[in-house]
Design a protein around this nucleic acid. Structure first.
Lengths: 231, 231
DNA sequence: GCCTATGTGGAGGAAAATATTCCGGTTCCT
DNA sequence: AGGAACCGGAATATTTTCCTCCACATAGGC
């Protein structure tokens, strides 16, 4: 009868922010991290509506363990969101700090960041997750901080003359949020296409265009091959 | 016991291509069209995995009617796919015939075509639908014809000098397939964003950039408003 | 090494979502 | 009018998903 009343509610509101309650046994902590890592991957690919068991399997853990650590899906989503937003923020700051120009920082940030995908997915695509995020003050804080950083790069790039003046942070975020959905399959097309699209989109953003595209042009024959032969 | 053996298989393979079997009573035909129309809308928005009853309701029809006309989901998907591919093909040909330049034809085709969205969704995003399409010779024919048309516009635009030379039909299709997923919600952001993205992407494709963007720049504050206040 | 609080896996029953059948009643067509 | 074709949706079957529970395992202080 260890559970005092309100324990669950507290856990759900603030999550396990490292310092909460008893400091988890070593293996428990490891499992918890695996769960979040697995959920991060799967949420990115399939959205936050996948059955809990899928996540448990991917984390090499029993469903029981998952439920013990996260009382319901919302708790899990919340934890993943906090973790993910923090990562994105870190990446953004690193880009800004390490790249010579604002444009380079922007490009690096957008290119390297698979994490960003998940953030946008959680915040803007999935209605369920959006609610969870709105109700979690910590996540909300991360989100604000992130947007501040983005704002500063975007405006700096415009001051540099590398980013067109008729867009703003919202446009940039929206544009790249479109890279969300994966093409099904795992052939060359599915692998190369996102990079090419990314480059084309960056050319669209740039004040003057002209970047070379990676890979070779994808023809309609490529699409055919993607549709027909696998089996 | 009207159903001779093989009837279902035949119906599934070729679908009701207007001339199949007995020519359907008037009300039946009407209902069938409503079903396909409804399915088209819903598939576009939510993908082809929605419960059958949702489609029936949207078509103002009982589930029974739906199942009578389409023995299973695959049959429905097949019918919608044929209908949709045919529409896209028509739109493509109209664009090519009526626009003065290849670039204009391309832009019009990509802009106006909500249908295209569904085609790409069915053919490339949903694995289930992809299988159905692959197994249906008629749909396959449509798809080839469509890609031929696309090929010709793309190459014509390149010959004109309006489309960059380092892309091909596959790139164009992929890029716009990204416009698939909607942002959740129905506020200004959700309404304006797609158009802006479309224009940015076209700028990225264009040999020289410079189109004015519709609407006003979306700021990070716009994103905030989208996330917080509704209720 | 031993002991116990803490943690684990996953079977299994409850609940929800979805698919599919069936038939009394209605509508079209000649 | 009259019969074949068709309709709606309640009822039933099936599948998916959730979540609890407990016999067994392990970490880690002593």
């Amino acid at each position: 009868m260890r559970e005092s009343p309100g324990w669950r509610a507290l856990g759900k509101a603030y999550g396990m922010t490292a310092d909460s309650e008893t400091p988890l046994r070593a293996d428990a902590r490891r499992n918890r991290d695996q769960i979040i890592a697995a959920a991060r991957t799967i949420f990115t690919q399939q959205g936050p509506d996948v059955p809990m068991e899928v996540i448990a399997r991917a984390a090499a853990v029993g469903v029981g363990t998952l439920y013990r650590r996260f009382p319901d899906r919302d708790a899990l989503i919340g934890a993943v969101a906090r973790d993910n937003f923090a990562r994105v923020l870190t990446e953004a700051r690193a880009s800004i700090a390490e790249e010579p120009t604002a444009w380079d920082a922007l490009v690096r940030f957008l290119r390297q960041s698979r994490e960003l995908k998940l953030s946008v997915q959680l915040a803007m695509v999935s209605p369920v997750a959006a609610v969870v995020i709105r109700d979690d003050p910590l996540t909300d804080e991360f989100r604000r901080a992130l947007l501040d950083e983005l704002d500063s790069v975007v405006h700096a790039a415009q001051a540099e003359g590398t980013l067109r003046k008729d867009v703003d942070t919202g446009d940039v975020a929206m544009l790249f949020s479109l890279l969300l959905r994966q093409i099904s399959g795992d052939d060359e097309l599915a692998r190369v296409a996102p990079e090419r699209c990314m480059t084309l989109m960056l050319d669209g953003l740039r004040a003057q265009p002209g970047s070379p595209l990676p890979g070779r042009p994808l023809t309609s024959e490529d699409l055919n091959k993607h549709l027909t032969p696998p089996t």
